[in-house]
Computed example of a mutant assay.
Amino acid sequence: MALLLLRDSLGVGGVGREVYVLYQLWYRQFAQGTFPVDDVTWQYPPGAGLVIMSPGVLPSLTYFQGFVALALLADAAITLALARADSDRVTHGAWVWVGGLPLLLHIPLARYDVQVTALAVLGLLALKSRSAAARRLGGVLGGVLAGVGALVKVWPVLTLIGTPRGRTTRDAWIAAATTVVALLGTLALLFSDSLGFLRQQGSRGIQIESLGGTALALARWTGSWPGTVEYRYGAFEYIGPYVSSVGRLALLLTVLAFVWLVLWRLRARSWSEATPLDAALAAVLLFTVTSRVISPQYMIWLLGLAAVCLTSRETVMRPVTLLLLPAAALSSLAYPVLYDEVVAASWPGVAVMVVRNGLLLAAALLAARRLWTSTVTVPA
């Protein structure tokens, strides 16, 4: 992976450009005490600034070298934590991570999603503690890590959706809320325009790699839709008739996914050691497939959560994991290998996206079904 990043010539190339151009530009702005102002590519919660600034703790390295080194360090932390959780040698969480991440080629080392995934993985493993005393401390620690993760990239807050009812849930959510408020207040005091990302996030359209984008690509390939592709907000998006309708449909499906998760939470009556892990993977999968954006780095989150699930013998997500591994390989085939074909909506690009997103949709529906049947419709 490191060698591929150093050469960075596979497919369309330039995977590392986001780090040594965009991230480094933001780093200089943070050094001046402000979040990126009027920058349409800044669409992240304020906690992301901490990750962008983190290479500064390694002054002996260039920004690019420091960023990659910290990504590798986060990868190592995840691997060691999963290996420790796999200590009974029956489960395979660490192997899913170690074998799954390289399927994404060098993308994980040139995005900050490995660092975010580390927060989610460590938080979930803390919630997995067996003894009562460890569970209480694990609830607080899991909540703190989920709160930090939520301020970096939002989705880690979903790791708390399956916390066991009672004290663990209260401790975790109170710790997460307290962490968010404290960290958000600190960043607002130290930097100006900390909430500016909300303007850019609300204006995003349908990215070509999303589920809705795949539907439009199929229509474009068959000649039944006259839309075009335009580079906006740091990604290629579809422009043309019905795009806004597809965007509203995606938002509606996201709301329905949230309603389903709340309903599951209320109806669930059987909790096992694996339930918080399985619920986190199912929740993130549902929000991923209903998103207007499904970038290849999103697969890093899903592989990390799948790996955590497989640290427990009681997980019901093994078949879901088997769908995510080929989906990860197809994601890197779509970008960077065949990205020109995906942008042009030619048959190879459309075929890759149909299969990749079909696997993700199947994984999301299967995860939701298995979570429901294992916790709600439990045999008498």
Rank of each mutant, 00 (worst) to 15 (best):
L338A: 14
V157M: 11
A134N: 08
G213D: 03
Q43W: 02
Q65W: 07
Y298L: 08
T79E: 06
L183C: 08
E341V: 03
M53N: 03
A307V: 08
Y233G: 08
V148N: 06
L82S: 12
V148Q: 03
L338T: 07
V51A: 14
A345P: 06
L277F: 01
T117C: 12
S224A: 15
L183G: 05
G304S: 09
L324E: 08
G349M: 13
L6K: 11
L158P: 05
S210E: 11
R167G: 08
S346G: 13
G202Y: 08
R356D: 07
L216R: 09
L137H: 14
F287Q: 06
Q65C: 02
T179S: 10
L323I: 15
L189T: 10
L198S: 00
V378E: 01
L22D: 04
Y20M: 01
V68I: 13
M53G: 07
L10V: 10
L322I: 01
T311D: 11
V157R: 04
V12N: 09
A126H: 14
P36N: 06
L322P: 01
T375C: 02
A172D: 06
F64S: 01
L5H: 01
R318P: 04
Y23Q: 04
A268Q: 14
A368N: 11
V96P: 00
L211T: 15
G14Y: 01
F197Y: 14
R111P: 03
A380P: 15
Y242T: 15
M299A: 05
A364K: 13
W301V: 12
A250V: 09
L61Q: 08
L195P: 05
Y339S: 08
L105P: 05
D171H: 11
G99A: 03
A126N: 07
S192H: 08
A146W: 00
W225A: 11
V98Y: 01
P156W: 09
V116G: 04
L184R: 06
T275V: 05
V337C: 03
L58F: 06
R220K: 12
A345W: 13
S244W: 10
R267W: 09
Y44C: 01
L277M: 11
T178C: 14
L58I: 02
A367Q: 07
P55Y: 04
R199F: 12
R199I: 10
A283N: 00
A74Q: 05
P241I: 00
P276L: 00
V293S: 10
L80D: 01
L124D: 05
L338C: 09
L158S: 08
V116D: 06
I161C: 06
T34P: 01
V243Q: 11
R135A: 12
T34H: 10
L330G: 09
